[in-house]
Structures are given as C-alpha cells and as structure tokens.
Write a protein that binds this DNA or RNA. Structure first.
Lengths: 193, 193
DNA sequence: AACATCCCTTGATTTAAGTCAATAGATTTT
DNA sequence: AAAATCTATTGACTTAAATCAAGGGATGTT
C-alpha cells in the first residue's frame, strides 16, 4: 500500500521522511471490486482516488442511456470529479472499477488541510493538475482536428497499458464513437485499400 | 495596468502590499494589435498571458489549412501553450489577438521563481489551473454527449461576452463545426419547426 | 467612390458515421 | 454443463454534417 503513490510523488517532488509521514496521515486505502462504483452520479465526490493497482473509469450517461467515457485511470493515475469534490455539489458523472483495484484516497478536509500545511503537497497537486490540464487540452484538439483513424492509432500508441485491458466498446466510447464504427475503423486499418 | 490582474488575484487569494509588490516585480505588460500574433506555431511559448483588455484566441491549423480554435481569452482570462511553456518545446498552436488588447505577461524564469518564493502565487496558480482543468473536462463531455444545438446554446449562455465580439465562423471553429453548419443550426433554432 | 476582402447564408450533392438488426464467439453465472 | 450475458463483427439503411459552389451584404482600404 502507498508504494505506487509515493513513488509517483517522489518522482516529481522530493520528500523527507517527516513530510511523507505527515502526508500519509491524511490518506486512506480502499479495495474495490470490478464493476463496483467509487462514485455515482448525483452523489457528492468525497475523495480524490489514486490507483495503486487495477483500473477505474469515469463516465456519464446521456438521455438515451448511452455511456460516454471521460477518463481511464490505470495504475499511477488519479481520478475524481474535481468540480464536485471542490464545490461540494452533486457529481455529474460515475466512477467505476474496470478491474479489481486498490486505491489511495484523500478526502476533501484532508486535502484542504494538506494544501495549507504541506507546501510539498501543494506543489505536487499543482504539478499533477497542470499535467492533467495539458492532456485535456490536447484531447480537445484531437477531437477537433484528427480523423477517427488517427485518434484510434494515437490511443493505441499512447496508452498501450489500457488497450488490452478494457473491452473495445469502451475505447469507442472514450473516443466518441459507436462500437460499430470502431469495429469498421479497425477493419479498414488492418487491410488498407 | 495590472488592475484586472490583481483584482482577479485577490478575488481568489488575499495579498499584502508587500506580496503584491513582489509579484508585480515579476510581471510585464504588453499591448498587441488585432490580428497580431502573441505566439506562432513552432516558436517556444515564452509567456503566460493574462488579458487585461481585449481578446485573444489560440488555434491550430490542420493539414487542409483549416483553423481549429482551442480557446478564447477575453478580459480576466489566461492564455498560453502551457506544454510548450513548461517543457521548453516548440509550440503546437498559435495565439493571436482578436481585438486590440492589453496583456500582463509572466516569463518562465519569473514563473518558476515566483512558484518557489511566493506561496500565495503557487496557491493562485494551483487555483487557476484547477479551474481550467475542470472547464476542459466539461468541454470534452459536451463534445461527446451533446448535440450541436445544445453546444451552441450553451456557448451563448456561458460566454455572452464573447458571442458578439468575434465572427461567427470562429464560434463554429471553437465548437468543431463548419461555418455553413453553424449557420444552418442558427436558422433551425430561431424558427423551430 | 471604387475595389477588395471578409462574412454569412443558401442550395445541391457527397460522405462519413449512426442506427437497426442479426449472428456468433467468449465469458460469466448458476 | 447449460443458460445467460457480454462482446465484436457485419450488412442494409438512414441521417447528419461536410463539401462544393454561388451570391450578396458589410466593412475596410486606397
């Protein structure tokens, strides 16, 4: 427990043992089974989750009942509805385990306290969210200007650790396609012509 | 100069006069004419710009020569290619003034120094980028699950200060549509039937 | 004032992706 | 082992948006 979390932390920001102990005091641990919810739409998001092991996904369900996946979070990634977490509003999406998973959680009170008391944690959080912002912006640009072939090829090369662990229709949903369309795109790609 | 910047700052984080003076020392000011570039693709992004007055936009140009607008930044907003700024890599998009504008700039050395020396600035930056991240995530979800009518209606209600200041084809580009399609969507919306 | 450029709209047509439906292979559950 | 559910593929068809093309109104420039 906490191994992956602090490895990821120290890769960005150095930590003394005291600092690490302080931070660890504000965290907790949770195991979660495949298909189990960490967060359901309309519930307030009470934790930011870091994935030590396994994989989670966040998604919305539109009025037709179709799911739209916002994010996959494999080992070493964070996942939460940050808006709900910070504003204490009902969440607008669901977070669910795609595999049996082990999580490191931080609650909002612990988060706020750490931001105040631990400059290193503030730095770490700043670093994380900046990277997440950059990734999101790139994704919007991809949605705007790249063909679905390109987007799928990119996904494969960027996230090889995800592609073989989730069903294909979830990749389609992440990319904003129907499963049928992704299936046809794949056929077009293997036998070009 | 700096009025809008520090108003925005103090709305989030309190500042003593000394803290404000320290931060101001790390900033500079720039005026820029309509259609002038602040940043061109392939150049490294050397500043984060805060818009005091006027409006900027960031966009990419695809292989067909079509522009795709990533962001509008009217008064009170920030704009930069953060990836390029932080990684010192060539920028992958352009930033240009949509109107004559006044900017407050921070360079990367000044930014890094302020993050180290001014806890308030780190807090401010953390706050800003967190909000920007939340907004980006919402936008991806909109691209996935909402119709173009809804997206356009949303844009109007969310950004009334932008809608009447930029040509319609730029709104189309921001929303990921052709100008023709947006024109037809508008017609459908005014006379429903 | 004349010219050029930019901007928006509209029509006709093409194209890409979605929808609906069926099937078959995997995997999970009982 | 059988039943049920989930998953991926494929075909036929529909639909929504892009593309191509033209025209007219604004706006800006010399």
């Amino acid at each position: 427990m906490y191994e992956v979390y602090f490895e990821s932390f120290k890769n960005r920001i150095s930590l003394t043992d005291e600092e690490e102990a302080l931070i660890k005091n504000h965290l907790s641990v949770k195991k979660i089974r495949k298909r189990q919810y960490l967060l359901q739409e309309e519930d307030p998001c009470r934790h930011i989750a870091f994935v030590e092991k396994g994989m989670l996904r966040s998604y919305t369900v539109d009025k037709n009942g179709t799911e739209h996946i916002l994010q996959f979070a494999p080992e070493g990634w964070f996942i939460a509805d940050l808006y709900s977490f910070l504003a204490e509003e009902p969440s607008s999406y669901n977070i669910e385990a795609v595999e049996d998973s082990e999580l490191v959680l931080i609650s909002r009170p612990a988060y706020n306290e750490l931001l105040k008391t631990s400059p290193k944690y503030l730095e770490f959080s700043h670093n994380l969210v900046t990277n997440a912002y950059i990734a999101m912006q790139r994704r919007i640009n991809d949605l705007h200007e790249r063909s679905i072939e390109e987007r799928y090829a990119d996904f494969i090369s960027r996230y090889p650790q995800i592609i073989n662990r989730v069903p294909q229709h979830m990749i389609a949903s992440y990319l904003g396609l129907t499963p049928e369309t992704l299936s046809r795109v794949r056929r077009r790609m293997v036998s070009p012509g």
